[in-house]
Nucleic acid binder design. Structure first.
Lengths: 341, 341
DNA sequence: AATAACAATGCAAACGTTTTCATTTTGTGT
DNA sequence: ACACAAAATGAAAACGTTTGCATTGTTATT
């Protein structure tokens, strides 16, 4: 006699004196079973310690109750707001979130997508719009509801919700030029496989080109996403004779590194040098000096993405694509000012 | 004729001219099928676009290939290192991670645990040791391999790996007293449902008691986890006539807020006031002044937790409990110094 | 009170795999 | 070539649910 490990739906049914079908209905369509019966089943569930098996219901072609999220990394503040908001929104709709990280490796991303599909996620959240052709075509082939977060464009292959990063770049560039700077350096992350950064940079450069402002090659710095690296990479530039009067950073964390580099060398910000970021991370408003940046409202992005995904999954429109642009906004604070002369 | 939506294992089998059983084996025990057959199956998989159904295999009492993680929130830097390391480690062992957040609500945590068990996760990661009795007993009843991260104690009901937060509190308190401070304020998060903070605070207070140092009630501040709130809550204290010479913060983010509060009022750190944190978050070393804190090595915690969970799941020891303490370390930096006299 | 309409329940067939056991194929030693 | 062991494969039963259809129980209508 093999003692079964855990109660299944049949044990519950026996205990309650009904058929398994009724127990199942009691979970999935409670209105279809008599309150009295429902109560008896509830008691049986408790006394047996039954926990339903989602796998068994997922197999039925029915809902798995999961949604997949693929992000480059969980390790930094950029995505945490976003993910939290996304997760909460989907939780509210009854989904559990499967998360996978690829470390900015798009081949890996494709593998993770496959893995999530094996788990029969009902929808997929991605970051950005830069993905392998295989990734896009797999999504299309399986007709998996998907939403790309963080970047908006009007011509995407899948639904997207995000800030217009290009506009964010333009906006911060205009601000810097508006307040009179002509000698500006740029500190950006590597744009390889990172369309968010690429669009921002493009926006900045287009404005500069339009205004005939030239950024010398060696004022064009690259740094990984960290205060430490940003600080290190800026120090030589700021120590040189021929300094810029302003620095635009690809995001707020980098901007923070830049500010520290300047302060460590004894340059007051913004008196001697202006620094601007992009992103308006929590904390940016409370730095000293508070950081001029572009607000991207990542939690709004995450929340909206969650809502859209829910709609795509539960809605009736097949293969519908929805695109939402979340407005960007200049947060003018203390870290930028007219150039020192 | 109903056109089936997606290829299943039978389609693949037909295409390859073998039985479904062989296809299944080809995935799960590749060494048991001839290389030649394997190749034919591979081709068939590709041409049909087959993606295996984990739910169907999970139903077989076999592995679901998922591990659950329950955290208070994804929204802040505290956990991101930890989660990232945990996730990567488990990924390497072939698991996908199901993540759920409860916002420091332990009732919610219990619900999430149930939900994850419905998905038949093979293991569970939790944060901290403060959980409802129901949560513990459900885990024990289902014999689900579990590991609590972030806090170490020698007498836990489930496996744990983490820093000794009590010792961390003692360590930073000793440092502050060692360098000569006698007038110290404490700024901590609410310890309700947050055993990490509770242990740290206990450690600090025990050292103070041993050394007969008294902290007046009103030097005992509470703040949510954010730079903004920390800064705000400290400002009145620092503006008053009767100021402390040092402040110990419950974690580095709060410490950063404290430093900004001081600097905004024109008090140099550490000259006029010393500030210490706990955690050594990425970035803490690069603040100005760099922050004296206790290094907790969260990525080590996450990684170790992942390894332990893998071992608990795949190992042969039933109901084994493993406990690992990750050492803490004083990082003495610029934000603390002898009191100004 | 008889019947129609409807609500509640049960039966049994699916869902897509894995696995045990039996069978067939392949390889080895003579 | 032959016998035999070993390896590869197939057939079919399981896994724990859901659901269409049939059946039974209940209420409303006359």
């Amino acid at each position: 006699m093999k003692p079964k490990k855990y109660a299944d739906i049949i044990d519950v049914a026996n205990q309650a004196g009904v058929s398994p079908a009724t127990v199942s209905r009691c979970f999935n369509h409670p209105d279809k079973v008599r309150p009295d019966t429902r109560r008896r089943i509830k008691t049986a569930v408790e006394s047996t310690g039954y926990i339903r098996n989602r796998a068994a219901q997922a197999i039925h072609g029915r809902r798995s109750g999961t949604v997949g999220l693929i992000v480059p990394t969980l390790d930094n503040a950029i995505f945490s707001n976003l993910i939290q908001a996304f997760s909460e929104q989907l939780n509210a709709s009854g989904f559990t979130m499967l998360v996978a990280t690829h470390g900015y490796d798009l081949d890996r991303e494709y593998q993770l997508l496959r893995s999530l599909l094996e788990h029969r996620v009902e929808g997929i959240g991605l970051i950005g719009l830069d993905h392998k052709e295989e990734t896009y075509s797999l999504i299309e082939r399986r007709e998996t509801p998907s939403v790309a977060m963080w970047n908006y464009r009007p011509d995407t292959r899948i639904s997207c919700v995000g800030a217009d990063n290009y506009e964010a770049g333009r906006m911060i560039a205009r601000h810097i030029l508006d307040i009179g700077h002509k000698r500006v350096a740029l500190v950006f992350p590597d744009i390889e496989g990172n369309d968010r950064a690429a669009y921002r940079l493009k926006g900045v450069q287009d404005v500069f080109d339009e205004q005939k402002i030239d950024v010398p090659k060696n004022w064009h710095l690259h740094t990984p996403y960290s205060i430490k690296h940003a600080r290190r990479v800026c120090t030589p530039l700021l120590s040189s004779e021929d300094k810029p009067t302003a620095i635009i950073a690809g995001n707020d964390v980098i901007a923070q590194g830049v500010i520290y580099a300047a302060q460590a060398l004894g340059f007051k910000v913004p008196n001697r040098i202006s620094v601007a970021g992009i992103g308006d991370f929590s904390g940016s408003a409370h730095l000293l000096p508070s950081l001029t940046t572009i607000r991207l409202r990542s939690n709004k992005v995450g929340q909206t993405a969650g809502m859209i995904l829910d709609k795509l999954i539960n809605g009736d429109q097949e293969n519908h694509i929805e695109r939402v642009a979340i407005g960007v906004e200049l947060m003018q604070r203390q870290s930028t000012a007219h150039p020192f002369t």
